[in-house]
Design a protein around this nucleic acid. Structure first.
Lengths: 229, 229
DNA sequence: AGTCAGTCAATTGGATACAATTATCTTGCG
DNA sequence: CGCAAGATAATTGTATCCAATTGACTGACT
C-alpha cells in the first residue's frame, strides 16, 4: 500500500474501480472480502466499505450472505444506463452552450490532442481517456452534482462495453469529440446534441444491445411467475 | 428494532434518511456513531455503514476523524442540485411522452388524489407525498437508473428546502401536478416541461437561493486563495 | 434414478477492542 | 489580559472475533 490517500477505504475503492473498468476483474467474478483484503494488506472492514460504495455506483452487486460480485449488467440494465447517459450528456451540452468557461475550449482541445496521441492503441489508457473526455465536459458545467452522475454512468458504460462489445478500439471516435467541441463553440446545441446522440449511439450499437436475445430473466418473465414462490 | 429489513444497515439507513428529510435531524447536527448506535440499539458498525451510504446520497457529510454531520448545502450546492433536478425531470417528461405505460395515468391520478386529501396540512406526510409524485413520474419511465438519480435529487431538495424555505406548505402545488399529467397525456412535451420548470422554479424560488449572500466560502473565494495553505 | 433431508464448510453480518487523530481545556508565559 | 503550548478527553479509523446464513455435498428413501 504505497498509497497515502485520505483513507484506506478511498484507496481500495479507487483500486478496485480501476481494476474493474480495466477488465482485470471481469464481470461476474467473485470478490470475497478477506481475499481482497489480504491482497491489499488491509482488513475486511476496509474492503467492505469499498464494496458498499462500488455497489452504489453500480459496478458491483452484493447478494445477501453470498458476497460481492463484479456487476454483470443485463442488456436491459445496459440500455437503461445508456439511456440515462444520453439524457445527462445532452443536458451537459445544453448547459455548456450557455456558459462554457473561458479556459474550457483549451482544456477540451488539449484532451483531444492527448487522445489523438494514443490513437490506434487499444490499451487501458485509451479506454480511460475516451471516458474522461465526457467527464471533462461535465466538469466544465461547474456543477459537481451533475459531474458525479455523468462519471458514474460513463464508468458503468465502460463496464458494459467490456461485457458486450467485440472490440474496445475506437470506443469514442476522436474526431466526433472534435465536432462536438466545435458545435458547442458555435452555440449550436441542437447540432452538438445530434452529434452526441450519434456518437453514443455508435458506442451503444457496438455493444449489440438490441440485436441479441435478452437476459434469461426477461425471457422467462414472459412465461409467467407461477413458480416464483 | 421491530424492523425486519433485509439488513440492519438498510433499516438504520432508511430511518436516518427519514429523520433527516423530516427535519427531526436538522442540518449541521452531529451524528456520532455510538450515540446513534445506542439510540437504535445497534453497534457502530451498522451506523457507520449507513452513514457511508447517506454521504454518497449527499444527505450527510463526513469530515475526516471528525465524524458525520447532517449536510448543510451551501446556496451554491443547492443551486447545483436544483439544476440537476430540472435536467432530470425534463428528461423524465420527454421519455414519458413517448412511452407512458398503460396504468401510468391511473397511478398518477391516484397519487394526486392522495395529495389533495392532505391539502393544507404541513406535516411530514405532505412533504413526503410531494416528493413522491416526482419519484413516481421517474418510475413510470421504467428506468431504475434514472429513478434512483431522481430520488436522490428530490431527497436532497427536501433537505435544502428545510434549510432555506420559510414555509414548507405547498412545496408542490397539487394542481400543477395535475397540469403536468395532462400535458403528458396530450403528448405535449414542451408544455409539460414548461410547467415543470415553472413548478420547480417556484419551489426553488421559495428557497431564496439567489436573494441572499452566498456561503462564506464562495464569498472568500473571490479574494484569492493565497492563504489557502 | 430422482428427490429430499441432514450435515459441513465457507463467507458474510455484526460486535467489540485497540490505535490514531482531533478538539477542548488547562496552564504558563509574555 | 491575550496568546501559545501541552495535556486530556472524546470520537473516529482499523483490526479481530463470534454468530448466523448460505451453498454444496452426502446419503437415505420413494
Amino acid at each position: 500500500m504505497s498509497e497515502d490517500k485520505a483513507t484506506l477505504t478511498d484507496a481500495v475503492h479507487d483500486l478496485l474501480r480501476k481494476a474493474i473498468i480495466e477488465q482485470a476483474l471481469k464481470p461476474g467474478m467473485r470478490l470475497p472480502e478477506d481475499t481482497v483484503g489480504e491482497q491489499f494488506g488491509v482488513s475486511r472492514t476496509i474492503v467492505r466499505h469499498a464494496l458498499v460504495r462500488l455497489e452504489h455506483e453500480g459496478l458491483v452487486i452484493t447478494r445477501r450472505n453470498r458476497g460481492a460480485f463484479v456487476a454483470e449488467p443485463s442488456r436491459d440494465e445496459a440500455q437503461n444506463v445508456f439511456e440515462v447517459r444520453r439524457c445527462l450528456e445532452n443536458d451537459v451540452i445544453r448547459l455548456l452552450c450557455e456558459r462554457m468557461p473561458r479556459s474550457g475550449y483549451d482544456r477540451l482541445e488539449a484532451h483531444v490532442r492527448q487522445e489523438e496521441s494514443v490513437r490506434g492503441k487499444d490499451g487501458p489508457v485509451s479506454i480511460r481517456l475516451a471516458g474522461e473526455f465526457h467527464v471533462l465536459l461535465a466538469e466544465l458545467t461547474g456543477n459537481p452534482v451533475l459531474t458525479r452522475y455523468v462519471s458514474e454512468v460513463v464508468l458503468r458504460c465502460s463496464l458494459i462495453m467490456s461485457l458486450y462489445a467485440r472490440s474496445h478500439s475506437s470506443d469514442c471516435a476522436v474526431d466526433e469529440h472534435s465536432q462536438i467541441i466545435e458545435a458547442i463553440r458555435a452555440g449550436d446545441a441542437q447540432r452538438a446534441i445530434q452529434i452526441m446522440e450519434h456518437h453514443l449511439g455508435a458506442v451503444a450499437g457496438r455493444a449489440e444491445l438490441s440485436a441479441h436475445p435478452d437476459s434469461i430473466q426477461s425471457i422467462l418473465s414472459h412465461y409467467g411467475k407461477e413458480l416464483a414462490q
